[in-house]
Simulated assay, not measured.
Amino acid sequence: MTAIHRLGHLFAGALAGLALAVAAAPAAAYPDKPVTLVVPFPAGSGTDAAGRLFATEIGKIIGQQLVVENRPGANATIAANYVARAQPDGYTLFVTTNTSHSAAPYLMKNVPYDPVKDFTPIARGGNLPFILVVNPSLPFKSVQDLVEYAKANPGKLSYASGNSTGIVAGATLAQRTGIEMLHVPYKGTPQALTDLIGGQVDLMFTDLTSGLPFVQSGKLRALAVSTAARSAVVPDIPSMQDAGVPDFDINSWNGFFGPAGMPAEVVEKLNAAINQVVNDPATKERLAQQGFDAFSGSQQEFAAFVQEQLALWGKLIKDAGIQPQ
């Protein structure tokens, strides 16, 4: 064997050894860098407030910072599409609601993603109870007062919305009670509330996190929660059933997703962290103070829930007579 041949064999052997060493080297433990948590609503919204608290606590558990990135607009579909197209490596996560995953596919003619196939469901976060609030200058103090006023003044009242729950709840109220109201959609809840307080619109269904401080300060009047039963977070506010609107039960859910195809071990780690957050009494209380009802469960339970809610919201939107835009 010539010297050149010997060198060639040595070089080939070195390369093979290097390849084996690389293959045997353990992959970096997840996460080894900060994680982006995408929020589909503006800063100051209920999902944003709860999402930031979750981000802080999850970060403590997994040992890396979760950086919140707001991508609002188009019924949460801008953010959802962004996450659906991201790498499924666990470094782009999505905290969202029924807006992107239950309602948008029925409210919009062209949604650029599949809410089931394009995502990895990770864990439920809880519920964001909604309340019906009105400008206190209006001459009604109950839902029945509102209905009587609206029937006596058809088309005079306007209702704002900052998300799908607000859209569907407002349309459902009008349909169930036989009243006419003008719908005024907003890009997000904070601006809708600003105009409601300013008198540009008359009423809206808003999440507790965003609306309750204005109710407590007297800038808005709460008439009911958007569910058939009262909320444990605000037990003094009547349910829609109490308020005389039977079979009205609309709730906003919150949950965590990633792009489709995430590694199972990453999903398990994140699911465990989220469950740890909602089961911590101090954190659960802090979320409750924001108007957020925190609870979670398994990844499989959340996956089944997402499909159930997609069917449920399709029926709600159809029954309310809302046409896709």
Rank of each mutant, 00 (worst) to 15 (best):
L107Y: 00
Q144F: 12
A103M: 15
T77N: 05
I317R: 01
S210P: 01
P324F: 10
P235N: 15
L18Q: 01
A27E: 05
P235L: 13
A228M: 07
A79I: 04
F11D: 00
A3R: 10
P42I: 13
Q307G: 06
G17R: 11
R286G: 07
K117N: 13
I274E: 00
N275D: 00
A29P: 04
I250D: 03
K60A: 15
P72K: 07
V277F: 09
A228L: 10
G166F: 06
T172G: 02
G198I: 14
A79E: 01
G321F: 08
I61P: 12
S217C: 01
Q241V: 11
S231E: 09
G46E: 05
V68K: 02
L10W: 13
S298M: 07
F119E: 03
P40C: 01
D32C: 07
Q309C: 06
F256V: 00
V111H: 01
I322T: 05
K219L: 14
S298I: 06
K315A: 03
A29H: 06
F119R: 01
P213V: 07
W253G: 15
V306W: 04
N127F: 14
S161R: 01
A169D: 05
I131D: 08
N275Q: 03
R52G: 05
F41N: 02
T56M: 06
T47P: 01
A222E: 09
S239Y: 13
M108T: 03
L310G: 04
F302K: 02
L208M: 10
G314I: 09
I237M: 13
V278W: 08
G314Y: 10
I274L: 05
A273T: 07
L310K: 02
L220S: 06
T120G: 01
V266S: 06
A222I: 13
L128P: 05
K141Y: 14
G90Q: 09
G166V: 08
I122V: 13
Q87D: 07
V83L: 06
